[in-house]
Protein backbone atom coordinates (compact mmCIF):
# COMPACT_ATOMS: atom_id res chain seq x y z
CA UNK A 1 0.00 0.00 0.00
CA UNK A 2 1.42 3.38 -0.92
CA UNK A 3 1.76 6.14 1.62
CA UNK A 4 -1.13 8.17 0.21
CA UNK A 5 -3.47 5.23 -0.05
CA UNK A 6 -2.69 4.38 3.58
CA UNK A 7 -3.47 7.91 4.68
CA UNK A 8 -6.68 8.00 2.74
CA UNK A 9 -7.75 4.72 4.28
CA UNK A 10 -6.92 5.96 7.79
CA UNK A 11 -8.88 9.12 7.17
CA UNK A 12 -11.95 7.27 5.96
CA UNK A 13 -11.79 4.80 8.86
CA UNK A 14 -11.55 7.77 11.24
CA UNK A 15 -14.60 9.34 9.64
CA UNK A 16 -16.40 6.03 9.85
CA UNK A 17 -15.50 5.92 13.54
CA UNK A 18 -17.03 9.36 14.11
CA UNK A 19 -20.21 8.49 12.23
CA UNK A 20 -20.44 5.17 14.05
CA UNK A 21 -19.92 6.87 17.40
CA UNK A 22 -22.61 9.45 16.73
CA UNK A 23 -24.92 6.69 15.49
CA UNK A 24 -24.46 4.57 18.61
CA UNK A 25 -24.92 7.64 20.79
CA UNK A 26 -28.15 8.48 18.92
CA UNK A 27 -29.44 4.91 19.15
CA UNK A 28 -28.67 4.47 22.85
CA UNK A 29 -30.09 7.91 23.59
CA UNK A 30 -33.38 7.10 21.86
CA UNK A 31 -33.74 3.82 23.70
CA UNK A 32 -33.03 4.96 27.26
CA UNK A 33 -34.94 7.15 29.66
CA UNK A 34 -34.53 10.85 29.09
CA UNK A 35 -33.47 11.33 32.70
CA UNK A 36 -30.39 9.15 32.32
CA UNK A 37 -29.12 9.62 28.77
CA UNK A 38 -29.84 11.89 25.84
CA UNK A 39 -29.41 11.17 22.16
CA UNK A 40 -26.78 12.87 20.03
CA UNK A 41 -29.38 15.02 18.28
CA UNK A 42 -30.98 16.08 21.59
CA UNK A 43 -27.51 16.97 22.91
CA UNK A 44 -26.66 19.01 19.83
CA UNK A 45 -29.92 20.90 20.03
CA UNK A 46 -29.38 21.55 23.75
CA UNK A 47 -25.92 22.85 22.84
CA UNK A 48 -27.50 25.15 20.28
CA UNK A 49 -30.10 26.44 22.76
CA UNK A 50 -27.51 27.07 25.44
CA UNK A 51 -25.38 28.96 22.93
CA UNK A 52 -28.23 31.00 21.54
CA UNK A 53 -29.52 31.97 24.98
CA UNK A 54 -26.07 33.21 25.96
CA UNK A 55 -25.91 30.75 28.86
CA UNK A 56 -23.02 28.76 27.45
CA UNK A 57 -20.95 31.76 26.29
CA UNK A 58 -21.30 33.33 29.74
CA UNK A 59 -20.28 30.11 31.48
CA UNK A 60 -17.43 29.61 29.03
CA UNK A 61 -16.15 33.09 29.67
CA UNK A 62 -16.28 32.70 33.42
CA UNK A 63 -14.51 29.34 33.27
CA UNK A 64 -11.88 30.57 30.83
CA UNK A 65 -11.08 33.60 33.00
CA UNK A 66 -10.40 31.30 35.91
CA UNK A 67 -8.45 28.89 33.72
CA UNK A 68 -6.33 31.50 31.98
CA UNK A 69 -5.47 33.38 35.16
CA UNK A 70 -4.61 30.14 36.96
CA UNK A 71 -2.54 28.73 34.12
CA UNK A 72 -0.74 32.05 33.63
CA UNK A 73 0.24 32.28 37.30
CA UNK A 74 1.21 28.59 37.35
CA UNK A 75 3.48 29.06 34.32
CA UNK A 76 5.19 32.18 35.65
CA UNK A 77 5.79 30.80 39.15
CA UNK A 78 6.66 27.32 37.89
CA UNK A 79 9.12 28.62 35.30
CA UNK A 80 10.88 31.04 37.65
CA UNK A 81 11.02 28.59 40.53
CA UNK A 82 12.29 25.89 38.15
CA UNK A 83 15.11 28.18 36.96
CA UNK A 84 15.99 29.19 40.50
CA UNK A 85 16.09 25.55 41.56
CA UNK A 86 18.26 24.66 38.60
CA UNK A 87 20.66 27.53 39.26
CA UNK A 88 20.96 27.44 43.04
CA UNK A 89 21.95 24.00 44.22
CA UNK A 90 20.96 24.46 47.86
CA UNK A 91 17.41 25.49 46.94
CA UNK A 92 17.14 22.52 44.60
CA UNK A 93 18.43 20.01 47.12
CA UNK A 94 16.12 21.40 49.80
CA UNK A 95 12.94 21.61 47.79
CA UNK A 96 13.21 18.63 45.43
CA UNK A 97 11.62 15.98 47.68
CA UNK A 98 8.78 18.30 48.70
CA UNK A 99 8.05 19.27 45.10
CA UNK A 100 7.96 15.60 44.13
CA UNK A 101 5.61 14.92 47.03
CA UNK A 102 3.24 17.74 46.13
CA UNK A 103 3.28 16.61 42.49
CA UNK A 104 2.14 13.15 43.60
CA UNK A 105 -0.53 14.48 45.98
CA UNK A 106 -4.06 14.58 44.59
CA UNK A 107 -4.62 18.34 44.81
CA UNK A 108 -8.38 17.92 45.20
CA UNK A 109 -7.68 16.74 48.73
CA UNK A 110 -6.54 20.29 49.57
CA UNK A 111 -9.73 21.98 48.34
CA UNK A 112 -11.55 21.83 51.71
CA UNK A 113 -8.51 23.39 53.40
CA UNK A 114 -8.33 26.11 50.77
CA UNK A 115 -12.03 26.72 51.31
CA UNK A 116 -11.40 27.15 55.03
CA UNK A 117 -8.55 29.60 54.53
CA UNK A 118 -9.59 31.58 51.49
CA UNK A 119 -13.35 31.22 51.25
CA UNK A 120 -15.06 30.03 48.08
CA UNK A 121 -14.83 33.02 45.77
CA UNK A 122 -12.56 33.65 42.78
CA UNK A 123 -9.38 33.97 44.84
CA UNK A 124 -9.80 30.52 46.39
CA UNK A 125 -10.63 28.96 43.04
CA UNK A 126 -7.61 30.62 41.47
CA UNK A 127 -5.39 29.08 44.15
CA UNK A 128 -6.87 25.65 43.39
CA UNK A 129 -6.16 26.00 39.66
CA UNK A 130 -2.61 27.23 40.30
CA UNK A 131 -1.97 24.37 42.72
CA UNK A 132 -3.07 21.91 40.05
CA UNK A 133 -1.05 23.45 37.26
CA UNK A 134 2.23 24.62 38.73
CA UNK A 135 4.06 21.28 39.14
CA UNK A 136 4.57 20.05 35.58
CA UNK A 137 5.93 23.45 34.47
CA UNK A 138 8.28 23.57 37.45
CA UNK A 139 9.57 20.03 37.13
CA UNK A 140 10.08 20.16 33.36
CA UNK A 141 11.79 23.56 33.51
CA UNK A 142 14.09 22.29 36.23
CA UNK A 143 14.94 19.22 34.18
CA UNK A 144 15.54 21.28 31.06
CA UNK A 145 17.72 23.91 32.67
CA UNK A 146 19.74 21.19 34.38
CA UNK A 147 20.41 19.32 31.16
CA UNK A 148 21.97 22.17 29.18
CA UNK A 149 24.98 20.75 27.41
CA UNK A 150 28.07 21.98 29.32
CA UNK A 151 29.96 22.24 26.03
CA UNK A 152 27.49 24.89 24.85
CA UNK A 153 28.06 26.89 28.00
CA UNK A 154 31.78 26.56 27.39
CA UNK A 155 31.34 27.91 23.88
CA UNK A 156 29.29 30.85 25.17
CA UNK A 157 31.91 31.60 27.79
CA UNK A 158 34.74 31.40 25.28
CA UNK A 159 32.93 34.16 23.38
CA UNK A 160 32.93 36.14 26.63
CA UNK A 161 29.19 35.88 27.24
CA UNK A 162 28.03 37.81 30.27
CA UNK A 163 25.86 35.88 32.75
CA UNK A 164 22.71 37.55 31.42
CA UNK A 165 23.67 36.81 27.80
CA UNK A 166 24.40 33.23 28.77
CA UNK A 167 20.82 32.92 30.00
CA UNK A 168 19.31 34.73 27.06
CA UNK A 169 21.25 32.92 24.35
CA UNK A 170 21.80 29.47 25.80
CA UNK A 171 20.00 28.39 28.95
CA UNK A 172 16.49 29.78 28.34
CA UNK A 173 16.22 28.78 24.66
CA UNK A 174 17.41 25.33 25.62
CA UNK A 175 14.95 25.09 28.50
CA UNK A 176 11.82 26.41 26.77
CA UNK A 177 10.93 23.19 24.91
CA UNK A 178 11.00 21.35 28.25
CA UNK A 179 8.90 24.07 29.85
CA UNK A 180 6.37 23.83 27.02
CA UNK A 181 6.05 20.08 27.56
CA UNK A 182 5.21 21.00 31.13
CA UNK A 183 2.75 23.67 29.96
CA UNK A 184 0.88 21.09 27.91
CA UNK A 185 0.57 18.85 30.95
CA UNK A 186 -0.42 21.86 33.04
CA UNK A 187 -3.21 22.73 30.66
CA UNK A 188 -4.84 19.36 31.33
CA UNK A 189 -4.33 19.65 35.07
CA UNK A 190 -5.60 23.25 35.24
CA UNK A 191 -8.78 22.13 33.46
CA UNK A 192 -9.31 19.51 36.16
CA UNK A 193 -8.65 22.15 38.80
CA UNK A 194 -11.09 24.52 37.09
CA UNK A 195 -13.93 21.98 37.03
CA UNK A 196 -13.14 20.71 40.55
CA UNK A 197 -13.21 24.22 42.00
CA UNK A 198 -16.44 24.99 40.18
CA UNK A 199 -17.97 21.83 41.60
CA UNK A 200 -16.73 22.29 45.16
CA UNK A 201 -16.30 26.03 45.70
CA UNK A 202 -18.66 28.72 44.38
CA UNK A 203 -20.53 27.23 41.46
CA UNK A 204 -19.88 29.18 38.25
CA UNK A 205 -19.01 28.47 34.69
CA UNK A 206 -19.13 25.17 32.93
CA UNK A 207 -18.94 23.16 36.15
CA UNK A 208 -22.03 24.93 37.42
CA UNK A 209 -23.93 24.15 34.20
CA UNK A 210 -23.23 20.46 34.74
CA UNK A 211 -24.36 20.61 38.36
CA UNK A 212 -27.64 22.46 37.80
CA UNK A 213 -28.73 20.41 34.81
CA UNK A 214 -27.85 17.18 36.61
CA UNK A 215 -30.10 18.26 39.46
CA UNK A 216 -32.88 18.84 36.91
CA UNK A 217 -32.23 15.42 35.34
CA UNK A 218 -31.83 17.27 32.05
CA UNK A 219 -29.24 14.96 30.52
CA UNK A 220 -29.29 16.64 27.11
CA UNK A 221 -27.99 19.85 28.66
CA UNK A 222 -25.51 18.01 30.90
CA UNK A 223 -24.06 16.17 27.93
CA UNK A 224 -24.01 19.40 25.93
CA UNK A 225 -21.95 21.01 28.68
CA UNK A 226 -19.64 17.98 28.86
CA UNK A 227 -19.30 18.07 25.08
CA UNK A 228 -18.33 21.73 25.11
CA UNK A 229 -15.76 21.06 27.85
CA UNK A 230 -14.35 18.26 25.70
CA UNK A 231 -14.13 20.52 22.65
CA UNK A 232 -12.51 23.25 24.74
CA UNK A 233 -10.02 20.77 26.21
CA UNK A 234 -9.13 19.38 22.79
CA UNK A 235 -8.63 22.89 21.44
CA UNK A 236 -6.46 23.92 24.39
CA UNK A 237 -4.39 20.75 24.17
CA UNK A 238 -3.92 21.44 20.46
CA UNK A 239 -2.64 24.92 21.29
CA UNK A 240 -0.36 23.38 23.92
CA UNK A 241 1.04 20.91 21.41
CA UNK A 242 1.52 23.70 18.87
CA UNK A 243 3.50 25.74 21.42
CA UNK A 244 5.57 22.70 22.27
CA UNK A 245 6.43 22.05 18.62
CA UNK A 246 7.13 25.73 18.00
CA UNK A 247 9.65 26.03 20.80
CA UNK A 248 11.21 22.67 19.96
CA UNK A 249 11.50 23.45 16.24
CA UNK A 250 15.30 23.43 16.39
CA UNK A 251 15.36 19.92 17.82
CA UNK A 252 15.89 17.00 15.49
CA UNK A 253 13.15 14.47 15.05
CA UNK A 254 10.37 16.43 16.76
Amino acid sequence: MSFDAGRRRSLSVSLLGLVLGAGIWEYVGRHTQKSSFASFSATVSALWHMTASGELPRALRSSLELFAAGLGIAIVIGFLLGLVMARIEIVRTGLEPYVAMLYATPMVALIPAILAMFGFEFRAKLIVVVMFGIWPVLINTLEGARSVNPELIEVAKSYRSKELQLWGHVIIPYTLPFTMTGVRQSIARCLIGMIASEFLLSANGLGNLILIYTQRFDTAHVLAAVLSITLLATLLMGIGRGLENYFARWKVGV
Binding site: S36, A188, I195, T214, V222, V226
Partner: peptide, 26 residues
Protein backbone atom coordinates in the same frame (compact mmCIF):
# COMPACT_ATOMS: atom_id res chain seq x y z
CA UNK B 1 -5.87 3.19 15.48
CA UNK B 2 -7.83 5.31 13.00
CA UNK B 3 -11.12 4.19 14.52
CA UNK B 4 -10.30 4.92 18.17
CA UNK B 5 -7.58 7.58 18.24
CA UNK B 6 -10.01 10.48 18.19
CA UNK B 7 -12.02 9.14 21.13
CA UNK B 8 -9.06 8.16 23.26
CA UNK B 9 -7.26 11.47 22.79
CA UNK B 10 -10.42 13.53 23.37
CA UNK B 11 -11.21 11.74 26.63
CA UNK B 12 -7.54 12.04 27.61
CA UNK B 13 -7.57 15.80 27.06
CA UNK B 14 -10.82 16.54 28.90
CA UNK B 15 -11.21 16.68 32.68
CA UNK B 16 -12.95 13.35 33.29
CA UNK B 17 -14.30 14.51 36.62
CA UNK B 18 -16.85 16.55 34.64
CA UNK B 19 -18.57 13.22 34.04
CA UNK B 20 -19.03 12.39 37.72
CA UNK B 21 -22.38 14.22 38.18
CA UNK B 22 -24.00 12.63 35.13
CA UNK B 23 -22.64 9.25 36.21
CA UNK B 24 -24.66 9.55 39.41
CA UNK B 25 -27.70 9.52 37.13
CA UNK B 26 -26.50 6.28 35.54
Amino acid sequence: DALLRFYVSSFFAMPLIALVPVMTLW
